[in-house]
Design a protein around this nucleic acid. Structure first.
Lengths: 209, 209
DNA sequence: CCCGACCGAGCAAGCGATTGGGCAACCGCG
DNA sequence: CGCGGTTGCCCAATCGCTTGCTCGGTCGGG
């Protein structure tokens, strides 16, 4: 229940939120998720909104600023969820489970941002404007690794677990099902996926004696 | 040991293989993997090869045909490996393990194709020229699901396992580490990754009594 | 002397971005 | 009520540049 309000990213402009504006971001995000940020043109975004490309610049000052808002909003959400997850328990396994469920819920609301990070990471991470990306990613990694290491110390997780390797696997595994929604609802909701994943995580796929 | 030589994809032109040509495909694939197919320009490919963009069209008749060769070669390789894996054993668990190891080896040789499938799937799958993509994906799914179902029947895998959901998770999980090599060697080789994954798969991350 | 490999120049189309202006809805003020 | 001004939203037109691709010509090894 702890709502930590620390804003990580630095949004330069005020960017007052209007209804129309939010809708445009939504539309742009869908296109970015489907085709990648670089491969999406402002004309396509405008077409989806039913306006001309020039009209977009009444709401945003560049195509990059649209991407900026999508990405920063996502990372803020993720970090808020992670901080809450680790602060509400001392048990590593419970923390991991909480992190997984928090992620599943958050990712569901930010498909576009995730796709952009995967497809156009090299593009964004190279620009000074998006320096906050690397910073946020570091905190995410730190959060995961710490809980995994603590789980090893308490004997709940296997001692031979490579924490960093496991983190990379788990994080990326969590991100996967987000893309399945692209075509249409593929039959699984985020709870089902989180459950299946946790089951796989803790028990594997085999039957145990 | 059964080398099944059925070619799945339909490459329209002969496309006689020259050394230079293969090198160009390699260079183009690296760029496609890094930035996506649509976001990569023919001029960038030519620059990487040290020639002018127009000279590329001496070797290929379009940018798409470069992508075509990369993708079809990859899928042919995967299917050959899968067919061999399921034909060499009757034990579902052994088959799964064989599929995993075959995948890890094949994927390592086709990073570019994998990245293209992830980033630009909507672009390729929409074109008639790339219809073989959907066909190959169907066979891949069928192979996985069949072994998982058989494992449930023999009691080796959990009876409550959703075969299709598990397949989607496992397949995509297998694909993940391929991208880690993008930046530099991240410290893990394909054997380590396959082992870590199989361990996770069969046992989970927790300690068992 | 041929021929595969490449150059150099350029095409039409499309790109991101910018500008100036129009149009309706709303505001406070008389 | 009605009027002048403001604001939010969008169009039309255009800029300088990049895109995938074409094509006649050049060069060097076999």
């Amino acid at each position: 229940m702890v709502a930590i309000m620390t804003q990580v990213t630095t949004s330069k402009k005020a960017a007052l939120p209007s209804e129309r504006r939010a809708h445009l971001i939504q539309l742009a995000g869908d296109l970015f998720a489907e085709k990648g940020f670089r491969a999406t043109t402002v004309r396509e975004i405008a077409d989806a909104a039913g306006i001309l490309s020039g009209s977009l610049y009444h709401h945003f000052d560049s195509k990059e600023s649209i991407g900026d808002e999508i990405l920063s909003a996502f990372l803020d959400d993720v970090l808020v969820g992670y901080r809450a997850a680790v602060s509400e328990t001392d048990d590593p396994r419970a923390a991991i489970e909480s992190i997984v469920r928090s992620s599943a819920a958050t990712l569901n609301r930010h498909r576009a941002a995730l796709a952009m990070l995967e497809n156009d990471w090299s593009y964004f991470s190279g620009q000074p404007r998006f320096a906050y990306l690397r910073k946020a990613m570091k905190e995410i990694e730190k959060t995961w690794v710490r809980q995994l290491e603590r789980g090893k110390e308490t004997g709940q997780f296997r001692a031979d677990l490579d924490a960093r390797l496991t983190y990379r696997l788990l994080r990326d595994i969590l991100w996967i099902p987000t893309f399945w929604r692209q075509g249409q609802g593929s039959g699984w909701n985020s709870d089902q996926i989180a459950d299946g994943l946790l089951r796989l995580l803790f028990d594997g796929i085999t039957t145990h004696p």
